[in-house]
Each structure stands twice: as structure tokens, then as C-alpha cells.
Amino acid sequence: MSTLAEEIKNPFTLTAPERPNANALEHEAIYILREVAAQFERPVLLFSGGKDSITLVRLAQKAFWPAKIPFPLMHIDTGHNFPETIEFRDKLVEELGVELIVRNVQDSIDQGKVVEETGKYASRNILQTTTLLDAIEEFKFDACIGGARRDEEKARAKERIFSVRDDFGQWDEKNQRPELFDMLNGQIEMGQNVRVFPISNWTELDVWSYIQKENIEIPSIYFAHKRNTFLRDGLIWSAEDGVVFRAEDEKVEERIVRFRTVGDMSCTAAVESYADTIDKVVSEIRDSKISERGARIDDKRSEAAMEKRKQQGYF
């Protein structure tokens, strides 16, 4: 029998020594998930089908085993998904036997609550916020678990693990609750809710190493594949599925690519890569010179882009 102490010390014998600590992070994340289940009445796990939320699901399985995950998953569907991620989502939910709630950005558009963006950079990424806030109200969720990490972006680096949002879903970054030791204060008023980030302290490489070690299945678009693409602003965009607007002079070419994040298709660029296995992906990330969000156009809109979106209730 391997001892847990050894595992905490040397969890990644396969890939050591780059990020040998992920198990300490795993135990921290499990602690946080259990606090959510204990402190809130209606928690929900925000599931995008991306690697971070898939990792969260695995952590939640571990936290509550042999019981089922004691909260539903919710997908805010922009309608601009990679088809692979939807298939993947449905299969996972079936295996876990948990409830899946889907709310569509398209409905918010149809109800006239938000207006679809147009033009070259049109994206539904920002529109998601409205759909999310409506869903929180509809189900009276008091805690929304998300897969955001502090290393993703500078404004995220200031985020708490329990982050209180007001009735309008707003983040008051200057008035955040201090978090001391590992005590988490989940007391809120009616109408408020808490965004919870169990993998706050993980880096992108930690997540990938974890997926590798745990042998977690992830959607195929994370691995190198052939795809019809075009170039814009130095980034590679998918020319398939017609979601990303493409001007006529933007030439379609087949490239070997993979995706590093799987957000809304309209704002997620691909990277050229031959990494077609998890081991290759881990080594690629380790050597990478471009940050993960470097391939997301939504952050490039302005330097303060993320902070602004967060104040308005974004994930």
C-alpha cells in the first residue's frame, strides 16, 4: 500500500520534477469543495466542458466518494461550442449520474435581454454573463463553483477563493473579504452569491499534469488534429462550423493544430502543435513561451479587459 504521505511529497513520479506539488493543491481543492457543500444550500458547478471544469469534476468526485457529487453541473451554452465538447459533456454527466442544467445564450438573445455582437470580432463570450446571472436567480444558487485560476490573468490574481457577488453579480474588487489561513467565510445575505474557485492556486501546467497523472479523459480538440483554419492578427482561427466570422480575403488553409483553452469558439484561437497525446501536451506546455490567454482575443481588447468583465459579473 502506498502511503498518502509519499504521494503528497512525490505525486508526479511520471513527470517529475517540474511541478511536484500538485497533490498538495489537490488536497486544498478538495477541502474547498467540501466547505462549499457544507456551507451552502444550493451550490452548482459551472461546467464549460473545458479542461479546468473537467478537473473540478474529478476533484468533486474525490471529495465526496463514495457518495455522488452533491450538487448539479450547469453549462452556460453560448451555442458556439466545439461539437466535441458537447458530446463529451453529455457522456461525462451520464457516467457521474449527476444533474446537468443547460441554459442558452441564444434564449437571452431571443428574449431581447442581450444583443448579438456583429463584425469581425463578434463573440458571445460577454453575453454569457446575462444568461448566467438569470440562471443563478432562476435556481436560487448561492454558490457557483468555477475553474478559474489566479495564474491565468492579472486581475484573477487578486481573486479570493470565496468571492462574494452582489445581487447584480458584481465583483467589488476593492472590498474583498480577507481569507486567513484556510478558513472560508461563506456567510452571505439574501440575493448575494459566492463564486468559488477551488483550483485558484493551480497553474496551467498543474492542471495538465493532473490530467496526465489521473488519466482523465478530455475532449479531442485539446490534442493535435487537422483543421481548416485561417490567420488573423497573428492568431489561428477555426474555419469550420461557421462560427468565427471570416472575411473573404482571409484564406483557408489546413493546419495541424490544437486548442489550449476551450471557451466560446468565436474567441478561442488554435495553436500549431503536433502534441497528440497527453504526455506531449504536458511537455509542450512546460516549454511554452506564450501564456494560455495569449490565444484569447477577449483579453486583448484592453489591458483591463478581464477586470472590467469581472466587475460586471463574468465568471
Binding site: M1, S2, T3, L4, A5, I8, A24, H27, E28, I30, Y31, R34, Q61, K62, A63, W65, P66
Partner: peptide, 19 residues
Amino acid sequence: AIYFYDTEYQTAPRRSSVT
């Protein structure tokens, strides 16, 4: 018994989240 996920362990070290 001490569980971490579906595995039984003899010892739970400091800072481990177990059942």
C-alpha cells in the same frame, strides 16, 4: 479506515483531505 477517494490508506499525513 482512512480513504482518499476510493483507496484505503494506513496513514493520513498532515494537510491531507481524507475521509
